[in-house]
Design a protein around this nucleic acid. Sequence first.
DNA 1: TGGGGGGATGATACAATATAACTTTGGGGC
DNA 2: GCCCCAAAGTTATATTGTATCATCCCCCCA
Lengths: 168, 168
Amino acid sequence: MVEHRTSPHHSGPGRAAEKPHDHDACIDTAIARARALCEERSVQLTPIREKVLQIVWRSHKPVGAYQVLDELSRTHKAARPPTVYRALDFLIAEGLIHKIESLNAYLGCGEAGVAHTSQFLICRSCGTTEEIVDPKLDQALDAAAKRARFTVERKVVEIAGLCGRCAG
Amino acid sequence: MVEHRTSPHHSGPGRAAEKPHDHDACIDTAIARARALCEERSVQLTPIREKVLQIVWRSHKPVGAYQVLDELSRTHKAARPPTVYRALDFLIAEGLIHKIESLNAYLGCGEAGVAHTSQFLICRSCGTTEEIVDPKLDQALDAAAKRARFTVERKVVEIAGLCGRCAG
DNA sequence: TGGGGGGATGATACAATATAACTTTGGGGC
DNA sequence: GCCCCAAAGTTATATTGTATCATCCCCCCA
C-alpha cells in the first residue's frame, strides 16, 4: 500500500526518468523543513501533526484522509476522523501539504515555505503525482481571470493522464 | 434556492456587468442543443436525463448531486442517489455538464458540442461560476505537461475568488 | 499558587457525497 | 412470442467530511 525507500521514481519538475529517488531522505527533508517553518511561525507541529505529515509523505501518491487515519491508528489508538481532518487542515493552512481536489486526497508539498502556486500531474496508472511550478502557466491563469474581471484567491490545476514512465 | 428568469447576472467570458440575462432562454437553448446532440450521436436523452440537465441548468451556480435529487424527487418519486448519479455520469460523458471538483458539484456546459477544454471561475461570494475557454491557457497547460513528459487526458482548472460583481 | 484562557485533542454523533449489486421494465429486432 | 439490451428501480453500503461538546494541558499572571 505504501511506498518505501527502495522504490525508484522521478523526483522533480521536468526531470523524469533519472536516478533513483531516496524517499527516506525526501521525507526527512520535508519533516525538517516543516519543523523549521513552524518554529519560525510560532505554530505547533505537534506529534499528531508531524505523524500525519509523515504519513502523507510516505509516497508521492495522494493519500486519502481515511487511509491516513488507518495508519495513524496504529500508533495512536485514540485517532478519529476529526483528529485527522484537523491535522490535515493545519498542514494545508501552513502550506505543508496540498489537497488534490479531483481525488479527495492529500499530497506532501515539495515547495513548503516558498511562495508558489503549483499544478499537479496525476498519473492514472501508477498514481504518482508530481507537483510542478510553472510561472508561465500561473501567469496565464491570472491573465485569464483578469480578462473576466475576476479576483483570484485560490487556483486548482490538476492534470490527469500518464506519466512518462507509464506511457513510455 | 434556485435562480429564476428575472435574476440578472453576467452571461459570458470577459463580459461582466452587461445587460440582464434571460435565463429561461439560456436553459431552453441548452436543452435544445442537448437534444440535437444526442439525436446526432444516437444516444438517449431520456426524460430523467433531460430533467436532471434542466435542474443543473437552473442557475449558473454548481449544484450538488443531492440538491438535484431533491428537485428531481418532486416530479419523480422513485428517484434515488443512483438515479441521479447515472444521469450526471451520462451528461458528463456527453459533454453536457461539467463536474466542479473543488465543490463536488455540477454545472451546465456552455460549450456543449464544441470541442473545448474549459476553465472555471468560481465566486465564493455569490457562487456564480463562469466557464471560460482560453486557448492560451490551455496551451500553457499542454506545454507544462509536455515538459514533464506527461500525457494529458483530463484537465481540471478551477479558480476561486470574487467575480467582478461581488468584488466591485 | 491557583485560577483563567486558549490551543489542542478526545469523544460521540451525524451529514454529505458516492457506489455496488442485483432486479425489473420496456422497446426493438427477429 | 421471445430475446436482447439499455435504462431505471431497489436496497444496502462505502467513502468523505463536520458539528458539538468535553477534557486536557500549558502558560500567564494577579
